Amino acid sequence: MKPILPLIAGLAAALFTAGAAAQSAADYPSKPVTLITPFAAGSGPDAVLRLVSDKLGRLWNQRVVVDNRPGGGGFIAIDQARRAAPDGYTLLQLDSEHVAALPHLYKSRNFVTLQHFDPVASLFRTPFFVAVASDSKWKNMSDLVAAAKSNPVSYGSWGVGSAGHLGAQQLESLAGVHMQHVPYREVSQLYANVGSGDVPWSFATIPSSQGVYKAGKLRYIAIAAPQRIPQMPDVPTMAEAGGPASLYVSSFVSLLTPKGVPPAIRARIHADVAKVIADPEIRARFDTFAFEPLAWSPEEIQRQAEAKSKVYGELVRRGNISLE
């Protein structure tokens, strides 16, 4: 009978652990929660995160604090979150480029984002427009591609390895052209320079470029998506504008937890964030930004990230892009 005793003890321990996890999920959160983000205060993702944090705080009856840690290609925020205890009280907001492109851009670091973090909840996906100066001679994508085939053309983005940079790499590949990348540190300066014609074009989102657009200095000649959007119904799709029909440039933003957070707590966070994202006030704010609310499962976030990683890996290799 002696061998049975360790088995009984093991089962008891397992049941106790499961019960404790369930109890901790039921009690979660019992103290303030921190949402770390690599995005600067005032940016589109930051604005969304602050709305989400406010709604979560009311739902949880706890303070939910946004901690902006911009810079370092996202690693300042990532490293801060990696140092946190895996208890569900520190969440990390990342976009698909932080998740899927960083491993290819910083090869010597041997850092694979999803080996250190678990996706827990999706927030939104954003489309990208092709922005040119309002007085640009380019009226559509056919004009842009033709110009790139006959003369050197440059374009701007908000950094090496950004969605704007990698999206332009996709355009080059599909259109059979080569263009010069001009990375900017400040997004506001990027679109000011596009509006003045100092840099011919750039990918843009509504929140990042709306100031220059509303001032009448920017024009969108296409949306890099298969369908037009209600916020900009007069802007044609990439195919309608004469560009590569298969070019779809978008970025999705999610919340992640450090590896090791109990599954029951991750499930609680996922369910509560989904509830918050469905709130009409947040949906209305998403509409102003042309952000598409997402209700992906953690498994779907993983699948989407892996699909992006394959595309980005090939683009990084082909363009010999590195941040090291």
Score class of each variant (00 low, 15 high):
Ile76Asp: 10
Phe16Gln: 12
Arg69Thr: 11
Pro32Trp: 12
Ser134Arg: 15
Leu51Tyr: 13
Arg50Asp: 14
Arg69Trp: 11
Glu97Cys: 03
Val112Ser: 05
Pro29Lys: 02
Pro45Phe: 04
Phe117Val: 08
Ala25Pro: 05
Gly44Trp: 00
Ala40Phe: 11
Leu123Glu: 02
Val130Tyr: 02
Asp46His: 15
Gln23His: 08
Arg125Ser: 14
Asp135Phe: 14
Val52Phe: 09
Ala100Val: 04
Gln80Trp: 04
Gly73Val: 03
Val65Phe: 09
Arg58Tyr: 11
Lys137Arg: 14
Trp60Ile: 13
Asn61Ser: 15
Ala85Asp: 12
Ala40Lys: 13
Lys55Tyr: 15
Ala40Trp: 06
Ser24Asp: 11
Gln23Val: 06
His98Leu: 03
Leu56Pro: 00
Trp138Gln: 02
Gly44Gln: 08
Ser122Glu: 03
Pro38Gly: 05
Asn110His: 09
Asp54Lys: 15
Ala100Gly: 13
Gly74Gln: 02
Thr113Ala: 03
Ala21Ser: 12
Ala13Leu: 09
Val66Glu: 13
Phe129Pro: 00
Ser30Thr: 10
Ala84Asn: 05
Pro45His: 08
Ser96Asp: 07
Arg50Lys: 15
Arg63Val: 08
Leu49His: 06
Leu105Ile: 03
Gln80Met: 08
Arg58Lys: 15
Leu59Gln: 13
Pro29Glu: 07
Leu91Cys: 13
Ala101Ser: 12
Gln23Gly: 12
Val112Met: 04
Asp27Thr: 13
